[in-house]
Computed example of a mutant assay.
Amino acid sequence: MDHVLRGLREQRPLVQCITNSVVTNFTANVLLSAGASPAMSDVPGEAGPFAEIADALLVNLGTPTSEQRDAAREAVRADVPWVLDPVGVGALTLRTELAFELLRRRPGVIRGNASEILVLARAGSGARGVDAQDSSDSALDAARRLAGETGSVVAVSGETDYVTDGERTLRIEGGSELLTRVTGAGCSLGALMAACLAVAPALEAAAAASAAYAVASERAERQSRGPGSFAVALLDEIAALRPEDLSGRVAEEGRR
């Protein structure tokens, strides 16, 4: 997966983010630290045209205002590789209906926690708020099925991350528990996947982004005193990552 990070640093893709208002700043900083160029363009009338010039797109449903919903619908019509992050689906009707609508536009990657993926695979009822109530292992079969049905790569985040296209499944172990205590950490992973999607095929892009997050978060935890210092250290460690740091972090689960 080292070639994905190398390509990201060389090409510096322009990543359009239609994301939730809680995480905008942190998401932009993660992309800058990784070597990408973020653009938080989520205004109807601009989102569609901007997506035409972007290298990749993130659609995150964390705060689906009416303007963001319209912007997302515009942007996904563009010929641009994109990531759907279905934050909080199942718990709330509006965003759940929007997620299923956007699925018909065939995202390159669907990234979510186990509970969110189970909802999209019609195998679960969702989580309490944005926190997963299910393990990534319990959602793996549903993720494979969802990938087969949609043609998208599905990335399940958790104690172990899984990335699958329905046939191949990649496993990424590790990462810091402190990621769950920083607002925007998961949402920013979706943005990093979009950046990687601009330079690599979807399965490799999602796995490389997960591996980069695992390595950087482990290193950040070792030098932090808690969530605040960890968030700053995470940005530093993402910026300091070398392509070879990802070697050996992705394992093949096998083909179905």
Rank of each mutant, 00 (worst) to 15 (best):
R106L: 10
E177Q: 07
A195S: 14
A207G: 07
G148Y: 08
A207C: 11
T183R: 00
L178Y: 02
A28Y: 05
F26S: 02
L57K: 09
A147N: 01
D165M: 09
V182S: 05
A34E: 10
L102V: 15
S37I: 14
A121L: 07
I238K: 06
G190C: 04
A231E: 12
A211R: 06
D245V: 15
Q223P: 01
A34N: 05
Q133V: 15
R69A: 14
Q16I: 07
V43P: 01
A202K: 05
A207L: 06
G35Y: 08
V109D: 03
Q16S: 05
V215D: 04
S217Y: 12
L246Q: 02
G112N: 04
R255W: 12
D165H: 02
V199S: 01
G124R: 01
V119M: 00
A139W: 07
A91F: 09
E167T: 14
R77D: 13
G228C: 03
P81F: 10
A54K: 06
P38L: 13
L192A: 09
A206R: 00
R249N: 05
R77Y: 11
R106S: 11
L241M: 07
L146Q: 10
A239L: 12
R104P: 00
M1L: 11
D141H: 10
A239Y: 15
L102F: 15
A240E: 14
R95M: 11
R111A: 12
G248A: 13
N29M: 03
A47G: 09
A28E: 06
V153Y: 09
D134R: 07
A231M: 09
A142N: 09
V89H: 04
V80Y: 11
A114S: 07
A91I: 09
T183A: 04
F26H: 00
S217R: 07
L57H: 08
V22N: 00
S188R: 02
P38I: 13
R219I: 09
Y162A: 07
C187I: 11
I172R: 01
R9C: 09
R222H: 14
G184V: 00
R256P: 15
S176A: 13
E46D: 13
S21D: 03
E46P: 06
V153D: 07
A194N: 12
G35N: 08
A200T: 09
A78F: 04
L118I: 08
Q133H: 10
Q16M: 05
M40A: 10
R105G: 02
S229E: 13
A185L: 03
V59D: 04
V22K: 00
L189E: 12
E173N: 12
L235M: 05
G62N: 02
C187K: 03
E46V: 15
D79G: 14
V119R: 00
S33G: 10
A75H: 13
R12K: 10
L178V: 09
A239I: 15
E46K: 02
V215R: 01
A233V: 14
R9V: 11
G35H: 03
S247G: 11
A127S: 12
M40D: 11
V83I: 14
